[in-house]
Every structure is written in structure tokens, then in C-alpha cells.
Design a protein around this nucleic acid. Structure first.
Lengths: 198, 198
DNA sequence: GAAGTCATGTAAACGGTTACATGATTTT
DNA sequence: AAAATCATGTAACCGTTTACATGACTTC
């Protein structure tokens, strides 16, 4: 059992991601790249390490799966103790969301810098956000099957992943919109400044 | 001078926050609580430590200000070397935004947990988002003075802080909306489940 | 033949958080 | 008299990131 009471945050994200089945460390890295990526980022190496710790703590169990033609893998699932841990976690007050955004720092300082590379990065980010948005929207379709959203949210059995994915959609949509607007604003200011010189 | 080339992320946020004047460590903690809080979180102790490192690296200079009735303070401003550092930072590709959200983890797992505390936390988060939104909107008003937004963005001199604040507004607005919607959905499902039992 | 995927780790360095520590002044 | 604000730090711990390491099989 774990002695520590509070921090250690990745742990709960891993438990939540494992709730709907058995996955290997490698498969988890894929899940963290897509389905969970809207609320948690983790590097692959973190996941392998975390699974080892969770297994040592009895919150997940692993079983070896022998494969032909491929390396063997270990599939993990959440134990009863793991579920209790998640329940305890869910009942304690959430910490406010902590943001740290490189690109916003650059925009904040843009008046004293060359705006061109910042504009380029805003377009990059907008493209990434659009791509993620598409992935999330596909995921929503898959999750709700042939029901429309309202019906699914009222009557579906597993709405958690759907609801968290909706948050991801909102974030990506706004990110895309802000990046494009900001890039346009900075671009127009650049154009004007160029004209003023010539 | 700093030897390391890339990570060390707080540093750039501090430089960006210091661009519009001289501030003490204590004042910086206030700025990180408000104006910068839409793209970076830092604990007070981090800021004191970071200022010390930045000064040792020549990226900021501090000057002692003797005060009566209050402890003396040190005011810091960005040096030319600091500005060059920021410029170099702004020109390198931004890392994708990394998210880690406790509350979304809980929502993701909510189907197997007691939804009541999660709903409560969603309301808490919605309230916080609304409060932050108000602060940001006041900040926007202050920043653009008596110009309307469009005119200010075209002709204003310092639009960086305004643009980054717009991102904060978008985020808080969506956060509030998602939290309230999600809380309502979960609440209605709870009510139905309660009726089904009785 | 090269690139990509499946599969899992270790170790070192870096960054962030929490707890502790101090002390004067101002406001309630 | 107590609480809040101004003002700055140290030390220990925890969590995250990066670099390194390995190897078979599959697809282009």
C-alpha cells in the first residue's frame, strides 16, 4: 500500500484510463496520446514506471501475455483497492487547474520581439488543435453509438469518457480560434508597420 | 550566463511578466496571481528562487529600495541580455500545451464512482472560473483604455498582454460552461437513478 | 535495406511543491 | 489582540523530462 496521501497525480489518471479494460504499458501510451490526452499528458517512460509502482501498491494487477512474432506484453487492470483509491481521490477537493503555456508567454511579450516566428507558431498550434478536435469528435461519435448526444447523456451507461472528451473539444476549438485570431491581428499589425517604414 | 539551452520554463514567464516595469519578488507573486495567471502558475517560493537565478545569469538586475515602516525590497528589471534570451526563446518552436487536470480525471471515471462530490467540485470550479473571468475582463478594460477592442488591437502599442488575456477569457468561459453543463448532466442522471430505486 | 511498430525499461538531470522560518507594520 | 499584508528566503521531497539502451518483427 501507498503511504503518501495526496500528490502523485499521474497515478489517478492511469487508473482512470485503465477502467474500461486491460492494457499493456505500450497500449497505455497510445491511449494517453488520444483518449486521455484531453486532460492528461504523460511521457511513455512515466507510464511504465507508474504501472510498476501501481502494481507494487496493489492498485493494479498485471498478467503476462505470451505472443508469437512479437515481444510478450503485460496487461494491467485496476483492482478493488485501485477502485477504492480512485473513489477516495474523487471525493477530495480538486486542485485548481494549473496552466503553463509557452506560446502564451511569447504572445504576452510580443510587443518587444519579432512577431514573425510567433505568428508561425500560432498557425502550428491552430493546426494541432484542429487535428485534435477531429480526433475528439470521432471519439464522441464512437462513444455514443447511434444515439444523439442528448439521449446518450441521459440514458447511456458510460458517460464519463464522453463528458471529459467534451471538455477536450471545447478547449481545442477555443485554442484554434484564439490562435487564428491572434495570428491575424499580429499579421495585420506587421503589415501596417512595414508600410509605415517604406 | 546560463549554460543550459532549452527547458527551464518558468524563467521566460518571469521575464515576460517583468517587461512592463520594475517589480519586487513579492509584487511578482501578485502579478502571477492575476495578470499572468492565465498562462502560467508559479508558487511564490519559485519566483524568489527564479529571480535569484536570473540575476546571477545577468538576465535581470535588481536594485535595493529602502523603505520606511516596511522591509526593504529589491526591484528587478529585464536587462538587454534578458531581452535577447526572450527573443531567442520566442523564435524556437513552442511545445504543445501540456494539460493535467484533476477534475477531468474524476469526470472520466465518474461512472464507477459516487457522482455527488464530483458535481460539487464542478460547481466550485465553475465559480472559480467565473471569478477569474471577471478579473480578466476588468484587465482588458484597463489595458485598452477608452478605445474599443478592434481599434485597440489595430492601433494600440502594447497588445501582447491584451492578446494573452483574451486567451484566458476564452479558457475561463469554456471552463465555466463545461462545468455547469457537466454538473447538470450528472445531477439529472443521479435524480433518475434515485427515482428508479424508490 | 530502411523505416516504423511493438515492447519495456534504467539513470541522470531538471523542475516544482510543500513545509519551515522570520519579522515588522498595517488593518480590523 | 488578532489577522492580514509586506518581504524574503532555505531545505527536503516529489514528480517530470530527457537521454540512453535493447531487440524482434512488419511494412514500404
Amino acid at each position: 500500500m501507498f503511504m503518501s496521501i495526496e500528490p502523485m497525480a499521474l497515478r489517478h489518471a492511469v487508473l482512470a484510463a485503465l477502467l474500461d479494460g486491460e492494457y499493456s504499458g505500450y497500449q497505455l501510451t497510445k491511449i494517453f496520446d488520444i483518449g486521455v490526452s484531453n486532460f492528461w499528458y504523460a511521457a511513455p517512460q512515466q507510464l511504465y514506471a507508474e504501472l510498476t509502482k501501481l502494481e507494487a501498491g496493489g492498485l493494479v494487477t498485471g498478467r503476462e501475455v505470451v505472443q508469437r512474432g512479437r515481444p510478450n506484453k503485460r496487461l494491467f487492470k485496476v483492482t478493488d483497492a485501485g477502485l477504492r483509491e480512485l473513489a477516495a481521490f474523487a471525493a477530495t477537493p480538486a486542485k485548481p487547474l494549473l496552466i503553463r503555456d509557452d506560446l502564451a508567454v511569447k504572445v504576452h511579450a510580443v510587443d518587444l520581439l519579432d512577431p514573425a516566428p510567433v505568428i508561425e507558431q500560432l498557425h502550428d498550434r491552430a493546426r494541432e488543435a484542429a487535428a485534435k478536435l477531429e480526433v475528439f469528435e470521432q471519439l464522441l461519435l464512437r462513444l455514443r453509438g447511434d444515439l444523439d448526444e442528448e439521449t446518450f447523456l441521459r440514458q447511456g451507461e458510460h458517460v464519463g469518457p464522453y463528458l471529459s472528451c467534451l471538455a477536450g473539444c471545447r478547449l481545442e476549438r477555443e485554442t484554434r480560434a484564439w490562435c487564428l485570431e491572434t495570428a491575424r491581428t499580429l499579421g495585420e499589425r506587421m503589415a501596417r508597420a512595414g508600410r509605415d517604414i517604406s
